[in-house]
Amino acid sequence: MSEVSLTVNGRRVSASVEDRTLLVHFLREHVGLTGTHVGCDTSQCGACVVHVDGKAVKSCSMLAAQASGSDVMTIEGLANGGDLHPVQAAFKEHHGLQCGFCTPGMIMTTVDMIARHPEGLDEATVRAELEGNICRCTGYHNIVKAVLAASKTMSKASKGKAKKAA
């Protein structure tokens, strides 16, 4: 058994679990956060993407024990109270989801993607960056639109902040 301690969405959680417990199962079954999904066995679909220490990872391919001591953010931790994160808002506005199953992973991947591309994104980059997230409903058209829109909103917001700071 492993004693796993994490900070999940800003809250300290710990539990004693079998060493073989995957991070995704730890989050779903021990922390009760079921927004992170499992859609495949081969770490390709991306429904399980969460952020560990600020980086997008596939929580189905990491043991909870490996993550112990880390800071984890899941889809449930993204919105600021009642205010949606700009990526969540863009997915809604641009109809970037249908059944919703891949959506948490898509959104967590997008937040990470935008953070890594502060210079902005174009369609080809977005499509390439979505390599590890599979959606069966939307045909990606509106997901790509949502990512591009969120990227614009967020770069405007950060420029605005930078101005204020100056």
């Binding site: 927004g35 449930e76 809604k92 109809h95 919703g100 959506t103 948490p104």
Partner: peptide, 16 residues
């Protein structure tokens, strides 16, 4: 109209 059901899916509150 943007979808009423989206809120729960984009916040991880869907119930499968």
């Amino acid at each position: 109209v943007s979808r009423k059901e989206d809120k729960r899916f984009i916040t991880g509150a869907g119930r499968y």
